[in-house]
Design a protein around this nucleic acid. Structure first.
Lengths: 198, 198
DNA sequence: CGTGGAGTTGAATACGATCAACACCGGTGG
DNA sequence: CCACCGGTGTTGATCGTATTCAACTCCACG
Protein backbone atom coordinates (compact mmCIF):
# COMPACT_ATOMS: atom_id res chain seq x y z
CA UNK A 1 0.00 0.00 0.00
CA UNK A 2 2.80 2.40 0.83
CA UNK A 3 4.09 1.99 -2.71
CA UNK A 4 0.87 3.60 -3.95
CA UNK A 5 1.96 6.76 -2.22
CA UNK A 6 5.54 6.55 -3.43
CA UNK A 7 4.27 6.17 -6.97
CA UNK A 8 1.86 9.05 -6.51
CA UNK A 9 4.67 11.27 -5.25
CA UNK A 10 7.02 10.24 -8.06
CA UNK A 11 4.45 11.44 -10.57
CA UNK A 12 4.75 14.87 -9.01
CA UNK A 13 8.41 15.23 -7.98
CA UNK A 14 11.70 13.41 -8.34
CA UNK A 15 12.36 11.05 -5.43
CA UNK A 16 15.71 9.35 -4.95
CA UNK A 17 16.13 6.13 -3.01
CA UNK A 18 16.85 7.82 0.31
CA UNK A 19 13.86 10.12 -0.05
CA UNK A 20 11.56 7.25 -0.95
CA UNK A 21 12.83 5.49 2.16
CA UNK A 22 12.04 8.59 4.22
CA UNK A 23 8.49 8.45 2.89
CA UNK A 24 8.12 4.74 3.61
CA UNK A 25 9.37 5.26 7.15
CA UNK A 26 7.04 8.18 7.79
CA UNK A 27 3.64 6.75 6.97
CA UNK A 28 1.65 3.95 8.53
CA UNK A 29 -0.83 1.72 6.84
CA UNK A 30 -4.26 1.50 8.41
CA UNK A 31 -7.19 -0.59 7.30
CA UNK A 32 -10.58 0.90 8.07
CA UNK A 33 -13.94 -0.63 7.47
CA UNK A 34 -17.11 0.91 6.16
CA UNK A 35 -18.64 3.23 8.70
CA UNK A 36 -15.47 3.74 10.72
CA UNK A 37 -14.57 7.31 11.69
CA UNK A 38 -11.06 8.63 11.05
CA UNK A 39 -11.71 12.00 12.58
CA UNK A 40 -14.45 13.71 14.57
CA UNK A 41 -15.35 17.36 14.96
CA UNK A 42 -14.27 18.63 18.35
CA UNK A 43 -11.18 16.46 18.45
CA UNK A 44 -7.71 17.63 17.50
CA UNK A 45 -6.55 16.04 14.26
CA UNK A 46 -3.52 13.83 14.74
CA UNK A 47 -2.87 12.69 11.18
CA UNK A 48 -3.41 13.41 7.56
CA UNK A 49 -4.67 10.56 5.42
CA UNK A 50 -3.89 9.34 1.94
CA UNK A 51 -6.55 7.05 0.49
CA UNK A 52 -4.76 4.11 -1.15
CA UNK A 53 -7.96 2.13 -1.67
CA UNK A 54 -11.62 2.76 -0.86
CA UNK A 55 -13.69 5.87 -0.34
CA UNK A 56 -14.05 8.40 2.46
CA UNK A 57 -16.22 11.40 3.06
CA UNK A 58 -15.38 14.69 4.72
CA UNK A 59 -18.34 16.42 6.30
CA UNK A 60 -19.41 18.82 9.00
CA UNK A 61 -22.56 19.30 11.03
CA UNK A 62 -24.15 22.73 11.28
CA UNK A 63 -25.96 24.36 14.20
CA UNK A 64 -29.25 22.81 13.15
CA UNK A 65 -27.69 19.37 13.26
CA UNK A 66 -27.58 18.94 9.50
CA UNK A 67 -24.73 17.19 7.76
CA UNK A 68 -22.96 18.87 4.87
CA UNK A 69 -20.56 16.80 2.84
CA UNK A 70 -17.62 18.86 1.64
CA UNK A 71 -15.78 16.24 -0.35
CA UNK A 72 -15.71 12.61 -1.30
CA UNK A 73 -12.25 11.08 -1.22
CA UNK A 74 -11.60 8.17 -3.55
CA UNK A 75 -8.26 6.49 -4.24
CA UNK A 76 -5.20 8.74 -4.42
CA UNK A 77 -6.69 11.68 -2.57
CA UNK A 78 -5.45 13.34 0.57
CA UNK A 79 -7.58 14.47 3.44
CA UNK A 80 -5.86 16.57 6.07
CA UNK A 81 -7.18 19.18 8.44
CA UNK A 82 -4.07 21.33 8.45
CA UNK A 83 -5.61 24.01 10.61
CA UNK A 84 -6.24 21.50 13.37
CA UNK A 85 -2.92 19.70 12.91
CA UNK A 86 -0.84 22.84 12.77
CA UNK A 87 -2.52 24.89 15.50
CA UNK A 88 -3.66 21.97 17.66
CA UNK A 89 -7.18 23.37 17.63
CA UNK A 90 -10.27 21.17 17.57
CA UNK A 91 -11.30 20.11 14.10
CA UNK A 92 -14.70 21.08 12.74
CA UNK A 93 -14.92 18.09 10.41
CA UNK A 94 -15.78 14.45 10.44
CA UNK A 95 -14.03 11.93 8.23
CA UNK A 96 -15.77 8.60 7.72
CA UNK A 97 -15.08 5.57 5.55
CA UNK A 98 -17.88 4.93 3.07
CA UNK A 99 -16.26 1.69 1.92
CA UNK A 100 -13.72 -0.66 3.44
CA UNK A 101 -10.55 1.31 2.77
CA UNK A 102 -6.80 1.33 3.07
CA UNK A 103 -5.42 4.64 4.23
CA UNK A 104 -1.87 5.77 4.85
CA UNK A 105 -1.58 7.96 7.91
CA UNK A 106 0.97 10.69 8.31
CA UNK A 107 1.52 13.06 11.20
CA UNK A 108 2.46 16.71 11.01
CA UNK A 109 6.13 16.06 11.79
CA UNK A 110 6.32 13.81 8.74
CA UNK A 111 4.85 16.57 6.59
CA UNK A 112 7.46 18.97 7.90
CA UNK A 113 10.24 16.46 7.25
CA UNK A 114 9.04 16.18 3.67
CA UNK A 115 8.84 19.95 3.32
CA UNK A 116 12.46 20.42 4.33
CA UNK A 117 13.94 17.08 3.23
CA UNK A 118 12.47 16.56 -0.21
CA UNK A 119 13.23 19.23 -2.78
CA UNK A 120 10.18 19.75 -4.92
CA UNK A 121 7.79 18.61 -2.20
CA UNK A 122 6.82 22.08 -1.08
CA UNK A 123 6.35 23.24 -4.66
CA UNK A 124 4.24 20.21 -5.49
CA UNK A 125 2.33 20.75 -2.28
CA UNK A 126 1.64 24.34 -3.30
CA UNK A 127 0.52 23.20 -6.75
CA UNK A 128 -1.86 20.73 -5.18
CA UNK A 129 -3.29 23.40 -2.92
CA UNK A 130 -3.75 25.71 -5.88
CA UNK A 131 -5.67 23.11 -7.81
CA UNK A 132 -7.81 22.43 -4.78
CA UNK A 133 -8.43 26.10 -4.39
CA UNK A 134 -9.47 26.40 -8.02
CA UNK A 135 -11.83 23.47 -7.62
CA UNK A 136 -13.33 25.19 -4.57
CA UNK A 137 -13.97 28.34 -6.56
CA UNK A 138 -15.70 26.37 -9.28
CA UNK A 139 -17.86 24.63 -6.75
CA UNK A 140 -18.77 27.86 -5.02
CA UNK A 141 -19.81 29.42 -8.33
CA UNK A 142 -21.75 26.30 -9.17
CA UNK A 143 -23.55 26.43 -5.82
CA UNK A 144 -24.35 30.11 -6.23
CA UNK A 145 -25.46 30.14 -9.83
CA UNK A 146 -26.89 26.75 -10.76
CA UNK A 147 -30.25 25.16 -10.06
CA UNK A 148 -30.55 21.80 -8.30
CA UNK A 149 -30.83 20.00 -11.61
CA UNK A 150 -27.83 21.76 -13.12
CA UNK A 151 -25.72 20.99 -10.06
CA UNK A 152 -26.68 17.32 -10.33
CA UNK A 153 -25.86 17.14 -14.02
CA UNK A 154 -22.58 18.96 -13.51
CA UNK A 155 -21.61 16.48 -10.84
CA UNK A 156 -22.43 13.53 -13.07
CA UNK A 157 -20.29 14.99 -15.81
CA UNK A 158 -17.30 15.59 -13.55
CA UNK A 159 -17.48 12.76 -11.05
CA UNK A 160 -19.68 10.09 -12.59
CA UNK A 161 -17.64 7.30 -11.04
CA UNK A 162 -18.19 8.68 -7.55
CA UNK A 163 -21.89 9.16 -8.19
CA UNK A 164 -22.18 5.42 -8.66
CA UNK A 165 -20.39 4.62 -5.40
CA UNK A 166 -22.17 6.80 -2.85
CA UNK A 167 -25.69 6.49 -1.46
CA UNK A 168 -28.04 8.94 -3.05
CA UNK A 169 -28.80 10.88 0.11
CA UNK A 170 -25.11 11.60 0.57
CA UNK A 171 -24.86 12.85 -2.95
CA UNK A 172 -27.77 15.14 -2.11
CA UNK A 173 -25.90 16.40 0.92
CA UNK A 174 -22.82 17.10 -1.20
CA UNK A 175 -24.91 18.90 -3.77
CA UNK A 176 -26.63 21.03 -1.16
CA UNK A 177 -30.16 19.78 -1.59
CA UNK A 178 -32.50 17.43 0.24
CA UNK A 179 -32.72 13.73 -0.67
CA UNK A 180 -36.30 14.33 -1.84
CA UNK A 181 -35.22 17.05 -4.24
CA UNK A 182 -32.46 14.89 -5.69
CA UNK A 183 -34.87 12.02 -6.13
CA UNK A 184 -37.35 14.23 -7.98
CA UNK A 185 -34.58 15.78 -10.06
CA UNK A 186 -33.36 12.37 -11.15
CA UNK A 187 -36.89 11.33 -12.06
CA UNK A 188 -37.30 14.42 -14.22
CA UNK A 189 -33.98 13.94 -15.98
CA UNK A 190 -34.78 10.28 -16.63
CA UNK A 191 -38.14 11.22 -18.09
CA UNK A 192 -36.58 13.62 -20.56
CA UNK A 193 -33.51 11.62 -21.46
CA UNK A 194 -34.79 8.08 -21.99
CA UNK A 195 -33.16 5.74 -19.50
CA UNK A 196 -29.80 4.42 -20.53
CA UNK A 197 -28.33 1.46 -18.75
CA UNK A 198 -24.66 0.69 -18.39
CA UNK B 1 4.42 51.49 -2.18
CA UNK B 2 6.83 48.64 -2.78
CA UNK B 3 7.85 48.87 0.85
CA UNK B 4 4.31 47.80 1.79
CA UNK B 5 5.02 44.50 0.14
CA UNK B 6 8.47 44.13 1.66
CA UNK B 7 6.97 44.75 5.08
CA UNK B 8 4.19 42.29 4.40
CA UNK B 9 6.68 39.63 3.36
CA UNK B 10 8.93 40.29 6.37
CA UNK B 11 5.98 39.53 8.65
CA UNK B 12 5.86 36.07 7.11
CA UNK B 13 9.48 35.13 6.37
CA UNK B 14 12.99 36.40 7.00
CA UNK B 15 14.26 38.61 4.20
CA UNK B 16 17.88 39.72 4.01
CA UNK B 17 18.99 42.83 2.13
CA UNK B 18 19.70 41.00 -1.12
CA UNK B 19 16.36 39.23 -1.03
CA UNK B 20 14.50 42.45 -0.31
CA UNK B 21 16.30 43.93 -3.30
CA UNK B 22 15.19 40.99 -5.43
CA UNK B 23 11.62 41.73 -4.41
CA UNK B 24 11.92 45.44 -5.14
CA UNK B 25 13.35 44.68 -8.56
CA UNK B 26 10.64 42.17 -9.40
CA UNK B 27 7.48 44.16 -8.87
CA UNK B 28 6.10 47.21 -10.59
CA UNK B 29 3.88 49.83 -9.09
CA UNK B 30 0.68 50.59 -10.94
CA UNK B 31 -1.97 53.13 -10.07
CA UNK B 32 -5.48 52.20 -11.13
CA UNK B 33 -8.58 54.26 -10.80
CA UNK B 34 -12.05 53.28 -9.78
CA UNK B 35 -13.73 51.21 -12.45
CA UNK B 36 -10.51 50.18 -14.19
CA UNK B 37 -10.15 46.52 -15.12
CA UNK B 38 -6.97 44.66 -14.20
CA UNK B 39 -8.06 41.43 -15.80
CA UNK B 40 -10.84 40.17 -18.01
CA UNK B 41 -12.31 36.71 -18.51
CA UNK B 42 -11.14 35.24 -21.79
CA UNK B 43 -7.74 36.90 -21.63
CA UNK B 44 -4.60 35.20 -20.40
CA UNK B 45 -3.46 36.60 -17.09
CA UNK B 46 -0.09 38.28 -17.29
CA UNK B 47 0.44 39.32 -13.68
CA UNK B 48 -0.51 38.72 -10.11
CA UNK B 49 -1.47 41.76 -8.06
CA UNK B 50 -0.80 42.86 -4.51
CA UNK B 51 -3.15 45.57 -3.29
CA UNK B 52 -1.07 48.16 -1.49
CA UNK B 53 -3.95 50.65 -1.20
CA UNK B 54 -7.56 50.59 -2.32
CA UNK B 55 -10.06 47.89 -3.04
CA UNK B 56 -10.59 45.43 -5.89
CA UNK B 57 -13.18 42.84 -6.68
CA UNK B 58 -12.74 39.43 -8.30
CA UNK B 59 -15.82 38.20 -10.12
CA UNK B 60 -17.04 35.99 -12.92
CA UNK B 61 -20.05 36.00 -15.21
CA UNK B 62 -22.15 32.88 -15.62
CA UNK B 63 -23.96 31.54 -18.68
CA UNK B 64 -27.01 33.63 -17.90
CA UNK B 65 -24.91 36.76 -17.85
CA UNK B 66 -25.06 37.20 -14.09
CA UNK B 67 -22.11 38.47 -12.13
CA UNK B 68 -20.89 36.56 -9.10
CA UNK B 69 -18.34 38.22 -6.87
CA UNK B 70 -15.90 35.72 -5.45
CA UNK B 71 -13.82 38.00 -3.28
CA UNK B 72 -13.24 41.58 -2.31
CA UNK B 73 -9.57 42.52 -2.09
CA UNK B 74 -8.66 45.30 0.31
CA UNK B 75 -5.16 46.42 1.31
CA UNK B 76 -2.54 43.72 1.71
CA UNK B 77 -4.30 41.04 -0.29
CA UNK B 78 -3.10 39.18 -3.33
CA UNK B 79 -5.14 38.40 -6.39
CA UNK B 80 -3.58 36.03 -8.88
CA UNK B 81 -5.11 33.64 -11.35
CA UNK B 82 -2.40 31.03 -11.11
CA UNK B 83 -4.17 28.61 -13.40
CA UNK B 84 -4.14 31.17 -16.18
CA UNK B 85 -0.62 32.41 -15.44
CA UNK B 86 0.90 28.95 -15.14
CA UNK B 87 -0.86 27.20 -18.01
CA UNK B 88 -1.32 30.26 -20.25
CA UNK B 89 -5.00 29.45 -20.52
CA UNK B 90 -7.71 32.11 -20.71
CA UNK B 91 -8.82 33.34 -17.34
CA UNK B 92 -12.44 32.96 -16.27
CA UNK B 93 -12.39 35.96 -13.96
CA UNK B 94 -12.63 39.69 -14.02
CA UNK B 95 -10.68 41.90 -11.66
CA UNK B 96 -11.87 45.48 -11.27
CA UNK B 97 -10.89 48.36 -9.03
CA UNK B 98 -13.74 49.49 -6.78
CA UNK B 99 -11.71 52.43 -5.47
CA UNK B 100 -8.69 54.31 -6.76
CA UNK B 101 -5.97 51.85 -5.84
CA UNK B 102 -2.25 51.21 -5.82
CA UNK B 103 -1.34 47.73 -6.90
CA UNK B 104 2.01 46.03 -7.24
CA UNK B 105 2.21 43.80 -10.26
CA UNK B 106 4.32 40.70 -10.46
CA UNK B 107 4.70 38.26 -13.32
CA UNK B 108 5.00 34.49 -13.07
CA UNK B 109 8.77 34.52 -13.54
CA UNK B 110 9.08 36.73 -10.46
CA UNK B 111 7.00 34.30 -8.47
CA UNK B 112 9.28 31.49 -9.55
CA UNK B 113 12.38 33.51 -8.66
CA UNK B 114 10.94 34.03 -5.18
CA UNK B 115 10.07 30.35 -4.88
CA UNK B 116 13.63 29.27 -5.57
CA UNK B 117 15.55 32.31 -4.32
CA UNK B 118 13.90 33.09 -1.01
CA UNK B 119 14.00 30.36 1.61
CA UNK B 120 10.72 30.38 3.45
CA UNK B 121 8.79 31.86 0.56
CA UNK B 122 7.34 28.60 -0.68
CA UNK B 123 6.39 27.54 2.84
CA UNK B 124 4.74 30.89 3.50
CA UNK B 125 3.04 30.66 0.14
CA UNK B 126 1.69 27.23 1.07
CA UNK B 127 0.49 28.57 4.42
CA UNK B 128 -1.31 31.39 2.68
CA UNK B 129 -2.96 28.96 0.27
CA UNK B 130 -4.04 26.78 3.17
CA UNK B 131 -5.69 29.67 4.94
CA UNK B 132 -7.42 30.67 1.74
CA UNK B 133 -8.59 27.14 1.28
CA UNK B 134 -9.97 27.03 4.81
CA UNK B 135 -11.78 30.30 4.23
CA UNK B 136 -13.30 28.82 1.06
CA UNK B 137 -14.60 25.84 2.98
CA UNK B 138 -16.19 28.06 5.58
CA UNK B 139 -17.83 30.12 2.89
CA UNK B 140 -19.11 27.07 1.05
CA UNK B 141 -20.66 25.73 4.25
CA UNK B 142 -22.12 29.14 4.94
CA UNK B 143 -23.64 29.30 1.47
CA UNK B 144 -25.07 25.80 1.78
CA UNK B 145 -26.47 25.99 5.27
CA UNK B 146 -27.38 29.58 6.09
CA UNK B 147 -30.35 31.72 5.10
CA UNK B 148 -29.92 35.04 3.35
CA UNK B 149 -30.18 36.89 6.66
CA UNK B 150 -27.65 34.69 8.40
CA UNK B 151 -25.20 35.06 5.54
CA UNK B 152 -25.56 38.82 5.73
CA UNK B 153 -25.04 38.91 9.49
CA UNK B 154 -22.07 36.56 9.25
CA UNK B 155 -20.49 38.83 6.68
CA UNK B 156 -20.99 41.89 8.84
CA UNK B 157 -19.35 40.14 11.75
CA UNK B 158 -16.34 39.02 9.75
CA UNK B 159 -15.83 41.82 7.25
CA UNK B 160 -17.68 44.82 8.62
CA UNK B 161 -15.08 47.22 7.26
CA UNK B 162 -15.56 45.92 3.73
CA UNK B 163 -19.34 46.06 4.05
CA UNK B 164 -19.04 49.81 4.50
CA UNK B 165 -16.88 50.27 1.42
CA UNK B 166 -18.77 48.40 -1.27
CA UNK B 167 -22.06 49.26 -2.97
CA UNK B 168 -24.91 47.23 -1.58
CA UNK B 169 -25.73 45.44 -4.82
CA UNK B 170 -22.17 44.11 -4.98
CA UNK B 171 -22.42 42.86 -1.45
CA UNK B 172 -25.60 41.07 -2.53
CA UNK B 173 -23.71 39.50 -5.41
CA UNK B 174 -20.98 38.32 -3.06
CA UNK B 175 -23.54 36.90 -0.66
CA UNK B 176 -25.37 35.07 -3.42
CA UNK B 177 -28.68 36.89 -3.29
CA UNK B 178 -30.45 39.57 -5.31
CA UNK B 179 -30.11 43.25 -4.38
CA UNK B 180 -33.81 43.29 -3.49
CA UNK B 181 -33.42 40.45 -1.05
CA UNK B 182 -30.46 42.12 0.63
CA UNK B 183 -32.40 45.35 0.89
CA UNK B 184 -35.34 43.62 2.54
CA UNK B 185 -33.06 41.65 4.83
CA UNK B 186 -31.40 44.83 6.02
CA UNK B 187 -34.77 46.42 6.63
CA UNK B 188 -35.85 43.49 8.76
CA UNK B 189 -32.65 43.43 10.76
CA UNK B 190 -32.90 47.16 11.37
CA UNK B 191 -36.47 46.81 12.56
CA UNK B 192 -35.54 44.18 15.14
CA UNK B 193 -32.28 45.62 16.32
CA UNK B 194 -32.97 49.33 16.77
CA UNK B 195 -30.76 51.33 14.44
CA UNK B 196 -27.32 52.06 15.74
CA UNK B 197 -25.26 54.72 14.08
CA UNK B 198 -21.45 54.87 13.94
C1' DC C 1 -32.21 71.27 -13.71
C1' DG C 2 -32.32 66.51 -15.46
C1' DT C 3 -30.38 62.09 -16.06
C1' DG C 4 -28.95 57.58 -14.63
C1' DG C 5 -27.45 54.54 -11.09
C1' DA C 6 -28.54 52.85 -6.47
C1' DG C 7 -31.68 51.45 -3.26
C1' DT C 8 -36.50 50.53 -1.53
C1' DT C 9 -40.98 48.57 -1.64
C1' DG C 10 -44.92 45.80 -3.45
C1' DA C 11 -47.19 41.82 -5.77
C1' DA C 12 -46.88 37.59 -8.06
C1' DT C 13 -44.19 33.58 -8.89
C1' DA C 14 -41.03 29.63 -8.57
C1' DC C 15 -37.99 26.55 -6.57
C1' DG C 16 -36.75 23.73 -3.13
C1' DA C 17 -37.76 22.38 1.85
C1' DT C 18 -40.64 20.13 4.92
C1' DC C 19 -43.81 16.75 6.57
C1' DA C 20 -45.82 12.48 5.75
C1' DA C 21 -46.93 8.04 3.77
C1' DC C 22 -45.36 4.23 1.44
C1' DA C 23 -42.50 0.78 -1.42
C1' DC C 24 -38.42 -1.81 -1.56
C1' DC C 25 -34.44 -4.36 -0.11
C1' DG C 26 -31.14 -6.89 2.84
C1' DG C 27 -30.27 -8.75 6.99
C1' DT C 28 -31.62 -10.99 11.49
C1' DG C 29 -33.80 -13.98 14.33
C1' DG C 30 -37.89 -16.62 15.64
C1' DC D 1 -39.44 -20.06 5.82
C1' DC D 2 -41.44 -16.09 7.31
C1' DA D 3 -41.90 -11.92 10.26
C1' DC D 4 -39.71 -8.00 11.52
C1' DC D 5 -36.65 -4.25 11.21
C1' DG D 6 -33.85 -0.24 9.75
C1' DG D 7 -32.16 2.10 6.10
C1' DT D 8 -32.90 3.92 1.46
C1' DG D 9 -35.42 5.95 -1.95
C1' DT D 10 -39.98 7.58 -4.06
C1' DT D 11 -44.06 10.29 -4.31
C1' DG D 12 -47.64 13.65 -2.80
C1' DA D 13 -49.31 17.97 -0.53
C1' DT D 14 -48.19 22.06 1.57
C1' DC D 15 -45.28 25.76 3.01
C1' DG D 16 -41.64 29.31 3.00
C1' DT D 17 -37.79 31.78 1.31
C1' DA D 18 -35.91 34.16 -2.19
C1' DT D 19 -36.53 35.62 -7.19
C1' DT D 20 -38.65 38.21 -10.61
C1' DC D 21 -40.88 42.10 -12.50
C1' DA D 22 -42.26 46.63 -11.77
C1' DA D 23 -42.81 51.22 -9.94
C1' DC D 24 -40.97 54.72 -7.29
C1' DT D 25 -37.57 57.67 -4.43
C1' DC D 26 -33.31 59.57 -3.69
C1' DC D 27 -28.99 61.41 -4.77
C1' DA D 28 -24.63 62.46 -7.10
C1' DC D 29 -23.02 64.43 -10.96
C1' DG D 30 -23.27 66.24 -15.56
Amino acid sequence: MVENLVTWLRERMPLNAAEAELVRGSVRHRRVQKGEMLQRAGEIATHGYFVARGLLRDYSIDEQGKEHILRFLPENWWITDFASLRDRTPSSRFVEALEDSDVLTMDYAAHQRFMSGIPGYSAAFATGLLRMSEARDRRLLDTMSATAEQRYLNFLETYSSIARRVPQHMLASYLGMTPETLSRTRAQVAKRKPARRG
